[in-house]
Nucleic acid binder design. Structure first.
Length: 296
DNA sequence: CTACTATTTCCTGGTT
DNA sequence: GAACCAGGAAATAGTA
């Protein structure tokens, strides 16, 4: 038995799940803002954002306002916070069209009021109360008072679990005929999961991801479709998904780093296709089944 | 027990 | 500098 030296270190690797609020009280804080959440874009005045934080801000606005990511030229936003702050409304509308005023207004709000909305508030076992927040910064899922608890992953195991029948024609993991990468059907008797080929826990990673996507009422902003018809999706809370996957596999040290390595192995098998340029974005490939809206 | 699959773990190096 | 991305390599666990 070999003990991995750092396995213990990962157990609490979920700090970004913690509830927190914007913390800059004066508009130009020094860098010593509170502890472990230091450095997140919503804790820092936009003037001091790095390129990465600008990118995070953009992604968040896309999510919370349900903007079409395809309309945003990300390459035009490969800029620092200082540069961003110097952009005029005209600059924004020039770059992103009608979406420009949303970006501009949100940024102005952040610059002068420090109101960034409390994104990333969702955490495990926490009831999010519905409360007033500006539309431009409120995650849509938050408005519905999502409740997330440990029973979530049990839905896959539960005999009574029933997937959203009215909108989800694809079969559940247990009724699905598992198809080998080469297209051969492995089994015709879905009621016998134990006979499934190499599927020890009942669900592969990609199926796990797919089922989160297909169960919106149980997906508290974890992953979202970027292009539903093309099978393109993006992780919103990468570490949270990793924790969930780890929980399913009884592995408390799962991280997004490790989960993503498994995801990359899917490229070769054409279960996933590479999506270049955008972080946390993946696309289902020809060997991934059950994600299409009207798949038979 | 052996072979195999599907990750898991670790790592180096590159990118945003 | 953090968070990702790319893959190689080796380990591991469940199944055939």
């Amino acid at each position: 038995m070999i003990l991995q030296g750092n396995s213990i270190m990962n157990i609490n690797h979920c700090t970004n799940l913690l509830v927190h609020q914007p913390t800059w009280n004066n508009p130009y804080p020094s860098c010593d803002t509170a502890g472990y959440i230091e450095g997140q874009w919503h804790d820092i005045h936009p003037q001091y954002w790095s390129k990465f934080q600008v990118w995070e801000w953009l992604q968040q606005l896309i999510d919370t306002n349900q903007l079409d990511a395809n309309c945003i030229p990300f390459s035009d936003f490969d800029i620092s916070g200082e540069h961003l702050c110097n952009m005029t409304l005209q600059d924004f509308t020039q770059a992103t069209g009608s979406v420009g005023h949303i970006l501009y207004n949100n940024l102005q709000n952040l610059k002068w009021n420090g109101q960034c909305g409390s994104q990333m508030l969702q955490s495990f076992n926490v009831v999010i109360k519905t409360e007033q927040t500006e539309p431009s910064s409120m995650p849509p899922w938050k408005n519905e008072g999502y409740f997330y608890d440990n029973s979530y992953d049990d839905m896959y195991e539960s005999k009574t679990f029933c997937r959203n029948q009215h909108s989800l024609p694809s079969p559940s993991p247990y009724t699905m005929v598992y198809t080998e990468p080469d297209g051969k059907k492995a089994h015709e008797h879905p009621q016998k999961p134990s006979t499934k080929k190499h599927n020890p826990r009942g669900t592969h990673l990609w199926e796990f991801i797919r089922d989160i996507l297909l169960t919106p009422e149980k997906n508290p902003g974890l992953i979202k479709w970027e292009d539903r018809s093309e099978g393109v999706f993006r992780f919103l809370k990468s570490e949270a998904v990793a924790q969930l996957w780890g929980k399913k596999k009884n592995n408390s040290s799962m991280t997004y780093e490790k989960l993503s390595r498994a995801m990359r192995y899917y490229y070769k098998r054409e279960i996933l296709e590479r999506v270049d340029g955008r972080r946390l974005v993946y696309k289902f490939g020809r060997n991934a089944r059950g994600w299409k809206e009207n798949e038979v």
